[in-house]
Computed example of a mutant assay.
Amino acid sequence: MDNKHIQKLREDYSLSTLDENDVHVDPIQQFKIWLDESLKAMLPEPNAMTLSTVDSDQKPHSRIVLLKGIEKNGFIFYTNYKSDKGRDIESNPNVSICFLWKELERQVRIEGVAKKISSEASEEYFVSRPVKSQIGALASEQSSVIENRAILEEKFEALTKLYSTGHVPMPDHWGGYVVEPTSIEFWQGRRSRLHDRIKYEKEKKNWIIKRLAP
């Protein structure tokens, strides 16, 4: 496919509208409303989000992770703290996350600060995971270079046998982060690229709602 074909790829959005007078005063509650609507629409993995971090050399990195909780103070995901994203957050906790619900012509952009949650909360989630996922967290030194896949699979099989009848321990280097938002933008696709953009910005303890030009 050449550039001319790529340039012609476009959609004219018309499913819904978004007005600042209709949204919830709390952006996290507004996010829950939209997430519930994506669940009712039976979208595939509506909790999938792009997480962007910046490393110690100020280089940005993005990847897809899964939202695993919403608290009054932010959005929770879990990972290996020694992974690339974990090291990035250790040196610079400012992150952004982005949800795309294409079928509903919606996007949510969140900027904030990532903080580790308690080990107790991480443990509670870890034990709720499928056993093979627990073992996978033990087997994989995430983001490290490995010689081949066979080494990973051999380690996984050995750990599976080791913990075949007992409790799988949560790795010390594994756990959750909560992204405490400083701004959240809700984007609703509209016709002729005149999209609706409603942005919440935090000023002290209050949320200020603004409409942005598309």
Rank of each mutant, 00 (worst) to 15 (best):
K59S: 10
S143L: 02
K59Q: 13
I151P: 08
K116V: 01
H195N: 13
S144E: 13
S91P: 14
I76H: 00
P27L: 08
H195I: 09
L43Y: 12
D12R: 07
L35T: 01
T79W: 03
P60I: 01
V131K: 14
V23W: 07
Y177D: 08
P44V: 03
D19N: 15
D84T: 15
V95R: 03
E141K: 06
W187L: 01
Q142G: 06
L9K: 13
I28G: 11
S96P: 09
S38D: 07
W187R: 01
S83E: 04
I208D: 12
L9F: 11
E153V: 10
D84V: 13
I76P: 00
P46R: 07
G112P: 04
V23R: 08
G189M: 05
L152N: 00
L138W: 10
A121I: 06
S122I: 01
A213Q: 13
L162D: 11
G189L: 06
G176P: 04
D196R: 01
W207S: 00
F126H: 12
K202I: 02
S118K: 02
H24Y: 09
K59V: 11
T79D: 04
N206E: 14
V65E: 05
L104A: 10
Q29L: 14
Y200H: 03
G166E: 10
V127I: 03
R191M: 11
D26S: 02
V25H: 15
K102R: 11
N3S: 08
I146G: 04
N148A: 01
E201D: 08
Q188V: 05
L66M: 14
R193Q: 05
D36L: 11
G86I: 03
S144R: 11
V168Y: 06
L39P: 02
D196Y: 01
L100P: 09
S143F: 01
L9I: 12
E45I: 04
I184R: 12
R190H: 14
H5E: 15
I209A: 00
K59D: 08
G112W: 04
K204A: 09
I64E: 14
M1Q: 05
G176Q: 06
L15N: 03
A41C: 02
R106H: 10
E20P: 14
I64W: 12
A139Y: 00
G176S: 06
P46T: 04
Q29C: 09
H24P: 10
W187I: 02
L212D: 08
K205E: 14
Q188C: 05
Q29R: 13
I135W: 06
D12G: 07
E153D: 13
N47M: 13
H61G: 12
Q30C: 00
I208K: 15
K102V: 07
Y163R: 04
I110C: 04
Q134A: 01
E153H: 09
Q134E: 02
H61P: 05
D57L: 14
I28K: 10
E37K: 15
I117T: 07
Y125I: 10
P46F: 05
T50W: 09
Y200P: 00
E147R: 06
D22T: 06
L9P: 08
A137G: 06
F156P: 00
R10F: 08
K116E: 06
S83K: 07
V113A: 01
G166C: 06
E37W: 13
E20W: 14
I33T: 11
R10N: 06
E141H: 04
E124Y: 15
R211L: 13
A41R: 03
S96E: 12
